[in-house]
């Protein structure tokens, strides 16, 4: 220990005596800037530049070696039935995942946290395991279970309970069901963990006092638990909305080329299709900017409705 201290002192002395630049870089005023420099650099190169470039690109037609400014042409062309179909699919997906991925995890977290629940660690782990799978693995599994033939598992279950088999990947509502089910399956356990952590912050004395005063379980939940975990609910709803609008992968693994009648098309998939596959970078960028505007507006409305802008107390 003393030796290392000695060495570091020697090094510091050497540093000071070496050059003005060296002692400048080692000074206490400059060190924090050097520490944060990777972040500043990455914000400039990986966020600000692409962001600026995306806006610029959306007013351009980008051809190899040539760039034309086309004004609002890209935005005008985005307003077409295929884009609206993608937006509609995405919006339905957002609404459904927000509901499912808030209500179900909250319910499960309350159960796991209940004093009468046994083996809660085991169940928590079991529900979390799907989060470890990649979306390709999940897509493979879902395509096997929800195969179109009458022999496939889901269809056999349907006929067993007296329904006719379905063409899962070829009808609009079953397509939506598959995408939402896949996302819910993979993300349920993650949100359960968020809620479980939030529930640890609920004041037990308050819950007990409420129950002494004759509050039933529902009243205790509404007036004690719910206010305490409200921040995490707002957080998860916000994240789920943003992730929902960003959805691409579930669609890609269910329909690797394109979905019949655009039933699986999402906004980001549309960006991918136009911007990458059809090489229309300007058009794709315009879709991206519109998506950003939508996400921004929806998040603001959501935060306003949930009272996140109101002052505390």
């Amino acid at each position: 220990m003393q030796l290392t201290q000695f060495l570091s002192r020697r090094r510091a002395q050497k540093a000071e005596s070496r050059s003005p630049l060296f002692s400048f870089l080692y000074s206490r005023k400059i060190a924090p800037y050097l520490f944060v420099s990777p972040f500043i650099l990455s914000v400039l190169v990986l966020y600000l530049y692409p962001f600026y470039s995306a806006i610029q690109m959306s007013f351009q037609r980008v051809l190899p070696g040539q760039v034309f400014y086309v004004g609002l042409e890209n935005y005008e062309r985005v307003m077409n039935p295929i884009f609206f179909r993608a937006l509609q699919n995405t919006s339905i997906y957002v609404v459904l995942t927000v509901i499912l991925l808030t209500v179900l995890p909250l319910m499960l977290a309350l159960i796991l946290n209940h004093r009468l629940t046994r083996w809660s660690n085991f169940f928590r782990a079991a529900i979390f395991i799907p989060a470890l799978t990649s979306v390709v693995v999940a897509g493979t599994i879902f395509r096997l279970i929800f195969g179109e033939s009458d022999q496939a598992l889901a269809n056999q279950v349907l006929s067993f309970i007296g329904f006719s088999p379905l063409d899962w990947r070829y009808e609009a509502w079953t397509a939506m069901f598959l995408m939402v089910a896949m996302a819910t399956w993979r993300w349920l356990g993650v949100n359960v963990i968020y809620f479980l952590a939030a529930l640890q912050t609920v004041n037990n004395d308050l819950t007990e006092a409420a129950s002494m005063d004759g509050a039933n379980a529902l009243q205790r939940f509404r007036h004690v638990t719910l206010p305490a975990i409200k921040p995490i609910i707002v957080f998860l709803v916000t994240i789920t909305i943003i992730n929902g609008f960003r959805m691409f992968e579930e669609s890609y693994v269910l329909w690797e080329s394109s979905s019949p009648g655009y039933i699986g098309l999402t906004v980001v998939r549309y960006i991918y299709r136009e911007g990458i596959q059809n090489n229309a970078l300007g058009f794709g960028a315009a879709v991206g900017i519109i998506l950003l505007a939508i996400i921004f507006v929806v998040s603001m409305i959501q935060l306003y409705l949930t009272g996140a802008f109101k002052k505390e107390h």
Binding site: L46, Y47, M57, F245, L281, G288, I289, L291
Partner: peptide
């Protein structure tokens, strides 16, 4: 900021 918005310029970069 969603990554997908900046995906095309990043791809170009």
């Amino acid at each position: 900021i969603p990554f997908e918005i900046m995906m095309l310029p990043l791809f170009q970069l």
